[in-house]
Design a protein around this nucleic acid. Structure first.
Lengths: 304, 304
DNA sequence: GATAATATGAAGGAGAACTGAATCTTTGGA
DNA sequence: TCCAAAGATTCAGTTCTCCTTCATATTATC
């Protein structure tokens, strides 16, 4: 009888591409993964893998087995969720991936609430930017991911992931407080006014970067991006100190007392924040509880 | 992650009722099964079993997990069959359960054919009477069962088993050769004539026994069952030597030169012979090959 | 009430699985 | 073109899981 553990390895290999990545993800040595895959292949009686350069690729039989393994893994996960549902308390460990701003704005209260309501629930949290986090959650690295999506930038869709909207986060133009920078900053009161000011933006590749550039071009100018950092807290500091302007989502200001001038943008654009989990684990009580707590805290933020 | 091997044990426990029976079926010691089930229960985090007298019974959570396990086991078996299908030759081992008469009549030629056509296929055969064999095949003790069914005695139906008719086997009245017994035997030439003769029949519980008694009663008498044995070869000997009469299926005479007087019964009743396999394994090439060979040999018998 | 059947626990041994070091191959740059 | 980095695999050794045996407790049966 084929072992689930080995099928898992094959599936992970198909999802991650290299033995090394699989080993890394599952806290094994590459050697262990290689040996177990070799064993699986012997049990299967059919070649599943073939060398392709320095990595491996799946044979047709391998692909077919991966597809079956995916079904089986999902079924197993559903069975486990079902087991947890027959437990009177919410128990177990949930691994959450979340991006910086949402972590700072929502998780402190969410975690306290969960600890109070479900003392047996263990939540593990890792800060990760959405692009990689979605794939990682699909590949069973996390159970729940809190991710964002900018208008016109649908985040990659993974079949097998269940998405649930959490909240909208309005984006506004953030300017230094009056007198903090030179007068050019003080004179600005709209997006178009920021045409010649220095900008801070996230690096290329981030959805927010692309969206911000588009917004500037719609307003008729090419932004002078002088500073790049993925850390929105750094954005805030650069703006507060009169060095730059930026388009910042509202969540950045939660729980902090920034001295910024905020200008609403025409059309009140916003990014949407959502959670995603594997469909097969969506019935797990721990997952349901964490999502529920997030919904409550997200709603509370909007009311403020 | 739950182990398939442990889920299998839980499923077997539900199918067989006692830890001892599961251990017996899987060639483990009862202690091993007990320990693995205890481990499964710990992993599950919920009680799955409860003591009921000196055996165990499933809790509601246990029942639910058994149902999930059944799905998963079927899925795994399908995946394995699918793997074998991508192998150019028919390979692997197939465990067949078959009852005595069919074994003697059909298997010698079937096995020779299979060895010639599929040298890599290993067929294991165990002689078993149909009643237990069907359950055992359902419970994964065998992969294929050749069983019989008497008119008006539908064999127990297992959901999850796939049944395929093989052939019909006409039943006739078997009398000693003329002069072999006393003259009462020689005078008989119909079922009714056998009313006062000594009978040999299978033991109570066998479908054939029940059917034979019914047949006698329909003919207007209660048979004098003086000898009981499940071995139809013994029936033949007792009849040949002028000791008894019996209702015998035609397959008994295949490949042997018996000196019996056979009398056709009105309505030409027959038992039907069929094969059954788990649906999840029905696509396995080894299974397909053996069934095909059986069909061919069964058809050849009918032509004789 | 004796005996057989059932489940389980402790101790020890066999085998599976994992780690670490060494080797080979491929790839991407300097 | 050659070197360094990344990937996969093999081997030897260690760790850990699982299984068997033996002993015990409990329940059912005659």
């Amino acid at each position: 009888m084929l072992e689930m553990k080995r099928l898992r390895l094959l599936w992970e290999l198909s999802a991650r591409g290299t033995v090394a990545a699989v080993a890394e993800a599952l806290n094994y040595s590459p050697s262990a993964v290689s040996q177990q895959l070799a064993l699986l292949e012997r049990e299967a009686g059919v070649p599943l893998l073939r060398k392709a350069g320095r990595t491996l690729e799946l044979t047709a039989a391998g692909e077919a087995l991966v597809a079956d393994a995916e079904q089986l893994l999902a079924g197993l996960e559903r069975a486990e969720a079902s087991l947890h549902r027959s437990h009177p308390e919410v128990t177990g460990t949930l691994r959450v991936s979340i991006f910086q701003t949402a972590l700072l704005a929502m998780m402190p209260r969410t975690l306290r609430r969960l600890r109070a309501e479900h003392p047996l629930l263990r939540v593990e949290m890792v800060q990760h930017e959405p692009e990689t986090a979605l794939h990682e959650t699909w590949a069973r690295g996390f159970d729940l991911v809190v991710a964002e999506q900018y208008p016109g930038h649908a985040a990659a869709h993974f079949t097998g992931l269940d998405r649930e909207p959490l909240t909208g986060d309005p984006i506004s133009l953030a300017l230094p407080p009056l007198g903090a920078g030179d007068t050019a900053f003080d004179d600005a009161s709209s997006l178009a006014d920021a045409a010649s000011l220095p900008w801070v933006m996230e690096p290329h590749g981030a959805a927010s970067r692309h969206w911000a550039e588009q917004a500037c071009r719609s307003a008729g100018f090419e932004p002078d991006v002088r500073y790049e950092t993925a850390d929105l807290q750094a954005h805030v500091r650069l703006i507060e100190t009169g060095n730059a302007v930026a388009l910042l989502p509202g969540l950045v200001h939660i729980g902090a007392s920034h001295r910024l001038r905020l200008v609403e943008l025409p059309g009140r654009p916003h990014r949407s924040i959502f959670t995603a989990a594997r469909i097969s684990s969506a019935g797990h009580p721990a997952l349901v509880a964490v999502r529920r707590a997030l919904q409550i805290e997200a709603a509370a933020l909007v009311r403020e």
